[in-house]
């Protein structure tokens, strides 16, 4: 082709797609940290009604009197919302880039190097986003009790939510956890790669193993709760 000199000058590392990916990786890692803490708290259901509710209340009083009531909780919430905004915004930006990088699709396209989890990041991410909205309505903002019971007692609200009479709610949660597991499986490895920690075959394999472990621990840990209620291990 006749030369068309279109070399860009003055590139900045912070304005690159890789920087965008790093934002995505870091915000994702923040979520993983949150999920581990969240899971730890949730598993308190196995310690019984009072232990769980005390823990829930303690989350609001932690840091007092230096912080106002629920102060730390709000700090965490703001942090998480910021991470979510960053995560979703960079996902949207990268997805749009990807679409414009291939506006004509293949008639036939096969995958041979990618895992199912890696190919479901975008739809899975969207599903998780919708789930989070429901989850917040369920337990935080709206306090919806699917059985129509009381909502002021966190432990009872949880047990009611997964009551066998409303089994489909548990199904929604379990499906969401599968989606979360998939998202984490690829997300953990991908974050390690994006942050430049996987520079050899061995570290690459370790990062992939870590993704699997994190996915199983978090998704599995959370899944214990609805399953335990469904099977009557945890009751009011």
């Amino acid at each position: 082709m006749t030369p068309v000199a279109t070399l860009v000058t003055g590139s900045k590392s912070t304005r690159s797609t890789i920087a965008l990916k790093m934002l995505m990786a870091v915000s994702g890692l923040i979520f993983i940290g949150f999920l581990l803490a969240h899971m730890y708290g949730n598993l308190k259901v196995f310690a019984g009604h009072d232990a769980f509710n005390t823990y829930a209340e303690h989350l609001r009083t932690i840091g007092e009197p230096m912080l106002p009531h629920a102060g730390l909780l709000w700090i965490i919430r703001v942090g998480l919302i910021a991470a979510l905004v960053v995560h979703v915004a960079s996902a949207i930006a990268l997805t749009r880039r990807a679409h414009s990088a291939r506006s004509t699709k293949y008639v036939v396209k096969k995958n041979k190097g990618s895992s199912l989890s890696s190919r479901t990041m975008r739809w899975g991410g969207l599903a998780l986003f919708l789930f989070i909205i429901w989850h917040l309505l369920n337990f935080t903002i709206g306090k919806i009790n699917p059985t129509g019971g009381a909502t002021h007692d966190p432990y009872n609200l949880l047990v009611d939510t997964f009551d066998p009479s409303v089994w489909y709610i548990s199904v929604i949660y379990l499906l969401a956890l599968v989606a979360l597991g998939f998202h984490l499986h690829h997300g953990v490895w991908s974050a390690c790669q994006t942050l430049g920690f996987t520079n050899a075959a061995s570290s690459r394999a370790r990062a992939k193993d870590a993704g699997l472990v994190v996915a199983i621990v978090i998704a599995g840990g959370f899944a214990l709760i609805p399953l335990s209620v469904l099977f009557g291990i945890v009751t009011k």
């Binding site: 860009v8 890789i18 190097g113 990618s114 690829h186």
Partner: peptide, 16 residues
């Protein structure tokens, strides 16, 4: 990387 982005290539999602 700046040139890569300017050419319109997509970002990597590490899927392999």
């Amino acid at each position: 990387v700046g040139q890569h982005d300017a050419e319109g290539f997509g970002g990597c999602t590490n899927i392999g």
